[in-house]
Design a protein around this nucleic acid. Structure first.
Length: 299
DNA sequence: ACCCAGGGTGACG
DNA sequence: CGTCACCATGGG
């Protein structure tokens, strides 16, 4: 848990925060709209620009009022969750232990559902650097202007503006063959598909609803569920995590059903958080590319 | 010239 | 149900 927050000069200050590593949290591939300037991290979310700074165990969030913190950032940064307890539950897993050791301050954000949906539709068969670039161009073309510190930023576009977008313009942003998915998904939301309502459904049902949207398959659905709808059991299976499960864990599942059972029984109700430690760890260290590599390199 | 990147879709068996 | 070519685009 965290110490009580203090509010002063439009800045929220939280002392003695142990499980919070901005670099890991913001650049592990779950969010795409953060930038770093030395020790300062600046991001755009909820149509605002916000900065965070970690110094000697103290986290500062600004500009942010008490109201902003309680209504937005406390949940966005998942500050109500006890990550120590979560990590204790994972401590018997020797591979996961390495992941938690590599980034003890990893957290899973709770982002805006529509932004998360579009962002991960764009992630398919793509890489993180390029995804960020595409999203930035979409924001510049379709997002609301935000003036902050003598500079102009752009909010993530709402469903209406992307639903009305011309394919040619979407392509110019670099979306490639995913342009039609972006437009169709935005149209679905604009015409009433209620992302927030998924929060109240069981995991399987919410996932089924999401996979009905063009460009959203199993993996992207799990990303939306985990990163924006509070389903911490959702376990996005990308190429890295898949390699990890088979090459490092030695899973021998023959199909998706067996694989899901393996993950569920192995990682439990917080599987999605485990996934985040694993993904960051193996991707940054380029582990699990082939069988037995883990043992060769680390044991 | 190839291969890969936080995959999804549609066709085919 | 499982497999597979194809899909834009940029970087190695």
């Amino acid at each position: 848990m965290i110490d009580k927050a203090e509010y002063e000069n439009n800045t929220v200050t939280i002392k003695h925060i142990s499980d919070f590593d901005p670099e890991a949290i913001l650049f592990c591939g779950q969010a795409f709209r953060w930038a770093r300037e030395k020790n300062l991290f600046r991001g755009v979310a909820f149509k605002r620009v916000v900065c965070i700074e970690m110094r000697e165990g103290t986290l500062r969030i600004f500009p942010a009022s008490k109201k902003d913190f309680e209504e937005i950032w406390e949940d966005y940064f998942d500050l109500k969750r006890d990550y120590k307890a979560v990590k204790d539950g994972f401590s018997k897993d020797i591979i996961l232990q390495k992941g938690m050791e590599y980034a003890p301050g990893m957290r899973v954000l709770n982002q805006e559902p529509f932004e998360t949906m579009i962002s991960f539709i764009l992630s398919s068969n793509n890489n993180i650097k390029r995804i960020s670039g595409i999203i930035e161009k979409l924001c510049m073309r379709y997002g609301e202007k935000i003036d902050f510190a003598q500079e102009t930023y752009f909010a993530f576009p709402d469903a209406a503006s992307l639903a009305d977008a011309e394919m040619k313009d979407l392509m110019e942003c670099g979306t490639g063959y995913r342009a039609r998915y972006v437009k169709a998904a935005a149209q679905a939301v604009y015409q009433g598909f209620n992302l927030q309502a998924l929060k109240k459904m069981p995991y399987a049902e919410a996932k089924k609803e999401l996979t009905g949207i063009p460009g959203v398959g199993e993996k992207v659905a799990d990303c939306i569920l985990l990163y924006s709808l509070g389903f911490v059991q959702a376990f996005p299976l990308d190429v890295w995590v898949r390699r990890t499960i088979f090459n490092l864990y030695g899973c021998s599942a023959r199909n998706d059903k067996e694989l899901n059972n393996y993950i569920c029984s192995r990682f439990g109700e917080y599987a999605g958080l485990a996934q985040q430690y694993l993904f960051h760890y193996v991707r940054k260290n380029r582990l699990g590319l082939r069988k037995e590599e883990y043992n060769e390199k680390w044991l």
